[in-house]
Design a protein around this nucleic acid. Structure first.
Lengths: 113, 113
DNA sequence: TGAAAGTATGAACGAGCATTCATTCGTGTG
DNA sequence: CACACGAATGAATGCTCGTTCATACTTTCA
């Protein structure tokens, strides 16, 4: 549906593309970052607010926000003493939505190996 | 568009859900697994074929296929001496498509900083 | 049945990385 | 201007995990 790229469906995708996918998906590969992103999907939040939201230490939150920032998934803007973070754009929100959606519908692996 | 789950959009998603997302997305967080999945999206392949496709060692391919199997993303079926792998279902193919699509359209992080 | 092809498995090694602790930087406030 | 608050940074640590090497398992064939 919709985005049926077939350049991507080629026998082997460009190595650069593969690496880019892995790098971006890596952002969603840890509970802490997923939690941060999902929280930011609801509304912009300051670092301090995020710290209380997810129950991590301030330093850990800052470190992970930096990772997400460098991946272009979130942006931070100064507001007085604090810095308010938000998702970079709607693409990120969509990516999150679809990750949630698909994971919810995956058959959760066959327990019988 | 489409799957607008709002249970997922709650202030904080269920911890179990967050972990599930992270675990599944972890499968797409490494170039080797992305390469394998993208190759399998085109058509089913035996282990030996995948080894030649992606240029990894047979052992490495088997190990990564096991990871993907346990996550319910691929399934393997015996065919004589060899084992033919394929994506578990269309959900996985869609997830791959959307990962490729979104990553292609992400603004690639701010080069500054 | 013995050998070879195809694949899986286990141990070991090393790199990547998430977290913590301590510190520094920037910004308001008295 | 000194101080408190909010956030970022750097070093250190422990763990996860991808890869390799060696080996065992399964199936086919002579």
């Amino acid at each position: 549906m919709g985005h049926g790229r077939d350049g991507a469906a080629a026998t082997t995708l460009a190595p650069a593309g593969v690496e880019a996918i892995a790098r971006t998906m890596h952002a969603l590969s840890t509970p802490s970052r997923v939690q941060l992103l999902l929280r930011l999907r609801v509304e912009p939040r300051t670092v301090g607010e995020l710290v209380e939201d997810v129950g991590m230490e301030q330093s850990a939150v800052s470190h992970q926000l930096r990772v997400l920032r460098h991946l272009g998934l979130v942006v931070g803007e100064r507001a007085g003493r604090q810095i308010r973070y938000r998702l970079h754009d709607d693409h990120v929100a969509q990516l999150l939505d679809e990750a949630v959606f698909h994971v919810e519908h995956l058959t959760a692996a066959t327990p019988s190996e």
